[in-house]
Structure formats: structure tokens, C-alpha cells
């Protein structure tokens, strides 16, 4: 999905897929949160590798990232990234716990809650792509990593690096009544796969 510019129409379609996926995810999450988080319209854009980490606080900022591969009609990976601050907000909402400001690591329960939240979001997104395109997609078990943003992102960047120098970012934002939580959903696939998405939707042949 790199190496060339998408047309406005293609970007709109990805945005719309994002909206639908996020809508589904919100419903699922509202049950977990026991509240009703809203989501803003996602921002979809291409970002250069060296600027990716800046979106989440710079290459040395500690972030939590959950990564899942998806396979089927198209292959790629999807990541959900939160800064440490945003992860604490999300966890305190979910688990009713408080986290000290200087905390830089999470326990097993915290990690598993982050992984599950991310899994719901990512699976919803992937399944909405699957439904819209009629492609049979399945997600693999996710893995979590908490480290410097630059290091965490080296994994998707390596995969992307085989096809280009940019990543497609779907910037999502959840809003709760009192707290807003900012997260990044990063959708990564190769050119062949993105072509397939557009072909299946009938806008490119």
C-alpha cells in the first residue's frame, strides 16, 4: 500500500471502511467499559517511516503496541498503538485501577486487558474489510510489546520496507464522557493486497 499515492476516492473508501470497523468495535467495547465510548471519524494518511514514531511521541517514547497478522484474500498486519499515558487511561477505565505517573511497565493482567481491547478493535476492522470486499480474512493471535516507539515500529516497518517507504495510518480516537483516549490503528498491507481491496469493491480493475 505504498510507493504511490491513493486517489481521494480510494482514501475515502478506506476511511469509510475504518468508520464501519470502528463502529462495530465501539459497540463491543462499550460492553467491556460499561460505558459508551464514542469514536471520531478516523484520519487516514500515509506517513514516512522516519515520521511514524513522531506520531506517538517520538522514537524514544515508551508505547504499548499490539500486533496481529491477517491472512486470506489479502495479507498484512494491523497494530494498535497507545502511548503509556493513554494505555494507563484505558486500563483505569477498564479495570478500575489507578496507575502511578512514573510506572513504565504493566503486569500480566494489564497486558492481557490491553491485548484483548486491541484484539476487539483490530478484528472488527479486519472483519469489516472482509464483509465489504467479500474476501475471507482471518486474524492470527495477537502479540503485545511495550518498548521504545522506534523499536516497536521496526517490525511493521521491516514488513513494509519490502514494498516501500511509507505506512498507511488510520488514526482513531475514542471519547468517553470524562476522558478521551487517543490510539493509533495502523493498517499495513502490500500493494498487491491493496489492489485486491479496491478491485473487490469494483473501483479498480
Amino acid at each position: 500500500m505504498t510507493g504511490r499515492k491513493l486517489t481521494n476516492m480510494e482514501l475515502d473508501i478506506l476511511k469509510e471502511i475504518g468508520n464501519i470497523g470502528m463502529g462495530n468495535a465501539t459497540t463491543a467495547l462499550s460492553v467491556m467499559f460499561n460505558t459508551s465510548p464514542r469514536m471520531e471519524v478516523p484520519v487516514v494518511k500515509f506517513v514516512d517511516f522516519n515520521e511514524l514514531a513522531d506520531m506517538v511521541g517520538g522514537p524514544e517514547a515508551i508505547v504499548t503496541a499490539v500486533l496481529t497478522h491477517f491472512k486470506g484474500g489479502i495479507n498484512g498486519m494491523i497494530l494498535f498503538i497507545l502511548t503509556l499515558e493513554e494505555a494507563k487511561k484505558l486500563l483505569s477505565l477498564m479495570l478500575n485501577k489507578t496507575y502511578p505517573d512514573d510506572l513504565v511497565s504493566f503486569d500480566h493482567m494489564d497486558k492481557s486487558a490491553l491485548k484483548e481491547t486491541a484484539n476487539i478493535l483490530m478484528s472488527s476492522y479486519i472483519s469489516s474489510i472482509g464483509t465489504l470486499t467479500n474476501l475471507k480474512l482471518r486474524t492470527e493471535p495477537p502479540a503485545i510489546c511495550i518498548d521504545m516507539a522506534g523499536s516497536v515500529l521496526s517490525m511493521p516497518i521491516s514488513e513494509l520496507g519490502q514494498v516501500g517507504d511509507q505506512a498507511l495510518i488510520i488514526d482513531s480516537k475514542f471519547l468517553d464522557n470524562e476522558k478521551s483516549i487517543n490510539g493509533f490503528l495502523m493498517f499495513v498491507c502490500d500493494e498487491e493486497s491493496s489492489d485486491k481491496i479496491f478491485e473487490s469493491l469494483g473501483i479498480r480493475c
Binding site: 522514537p59 518498548d147 516507539a149 523499536s151 515500529l153 517490525m155
Partner: peptide
Amino acid sequence: IADWKLCKAPNKITTIGLGS
């Protein structure tokens, strides 16, 4: 990322956030 540079004494050279 995906870059190289030279450096001359007495300076230092760095790269941030190596993962894989």
C-alpha cells in the same frame, strides 16, 4: 531508519530505537 552518516572526532553519532 534506512540511513547512514559519517562522523568525525570529537563528535558522536547515534541512532534511536533499534528494534529488529
